[in-house]
């Protein structure tokens, strides 16, 4: 206990206390800049958030983004991992190269993609132009802006899925494939009945981590679109930021944050139960 107490105290001060403090503030009308007493208003903040059309709009944007980005990353990440796992030479080098985007700061990634996707001066439109294709307004049109966010997030985080999938693929016992070969099983049959079922649980865990991360997306939105055009790419996290720091409505922002944490906890619990069932099955 004596050895762990510093860590426990740190956890208490840096994690547990802020959470409890935010929970307390979420039932008040406190504002960090205005100061003054934090008046208790019951579930007023929660009711306002849950019934707000603005929040519903951001929730839908976040949902579309999470589903789009995670689905794309899963397909690509698993595909790349599968192709790498079949190679005998250069596997390490390829894996390292593919991991580079994941190592970069999201702000840096956002900045250079912002330059690349610029409609006038960006390299992407320049390449499209050299092939006789028209200019695309990547970051300033409703549909393309959200698509751009999905693409950039996919570029950065596909390696994460790839890494987990690769670990799963390399752990599949070789004798299963050998047995299937003796039975003259087709490539597709082997993939469907051996590879996928064994890698699937691990892949689902990777999907869960990515979904949680994507649900909290803030930095890429801030750098690439600033939530625009209008508010069409504002995610829940970005909206919380605005509530917290533009108007300094600390009570509302705390309730908003607590609700987001609750959503993640509930969904993760349901997901983990499904994973356990899958494991038992």
């Amino acid at each position: 206990m004596a050895f762990t107490s510093p860590a426990l105290l740190l956890l208490l001060a840096m994690s547990v206390f802020p959470l409890l403090w935010a929970l307390y503030l979420s039932f008040t009308d406190y504002s960090a800049t205005r100061g003054g007493p934090a008046d208790f208003i019951g579930f007023g903040n929660y009711t306002a958030i849950l019934t707000s059309a603005q929040v519903h709009q951001r929730a839908l944007t976040t949902l579309i983004y999470v589903v789009g980005a995670v689905a794309l990353q899963t397909v690509l990440g698993f595909g790349i991992a599968y192709l790498i796992s079949r190679r005998t030479h250069g596997r390490g080098l390829l894996t390292t190269l593919f991991l580079v985007p994941m190592m970069l700061s999201p702000v840096v990634v956002g900045l250079f993609w912002r330059f690349m996707l610029d409609a006038q001066f960006g390299v992407v439109n320049s390449m499209l132009g050299s092939r006789g294709l028209g200019q695309v307004e990547w970051l300033t049109r409703q549909r393309t802006a959200l698509l751009s966010l999905v693409v950039v997030d996919t570029w950065q985080w596909t390696p994460f899925i790839m890494l987990i999938a690769l670990a799963g693929l390399t752990a599949v016992p070789k004798y299963l494939y050998e047995a299937a070969s003796i039975d003259r099983a087709s490539e597709w049959f082997r993939f469907r009945t051996i590879t996928l079922p064994l890698v699937w649980p691990l892949l689902l865990i990777a999907v869960m981590f990515r979904a949680i991360e994507a649900f909290r997306l803030f930095d890429l939105v801030y750098i690439l679109t600033n939530g625009g055009p209008g508010v069409s790419t504002e995610t829940l996290s970005f909206h919380v930021y605005k509530v917290a720091f533009l108007g300094f409505n600390t009570g509302t922002a705390s309730a908003y944050g607590i609700l987001m944490v609750l959503v993640v906890i509930v969904l993760t619990q349901l997901y983990l139960r499904y994973l356990n069932k899958l494991k038992e099955g």
Partner: peptide, 11 residues
């Protein structure tokens, strides 16, 4: 108009 509103300020 919302300066006196209780709850949900900033949304």
């Amino acid at each position: 108009d919302s300066s006196g509103r209780k709850g949900g300020g900033g949304l």
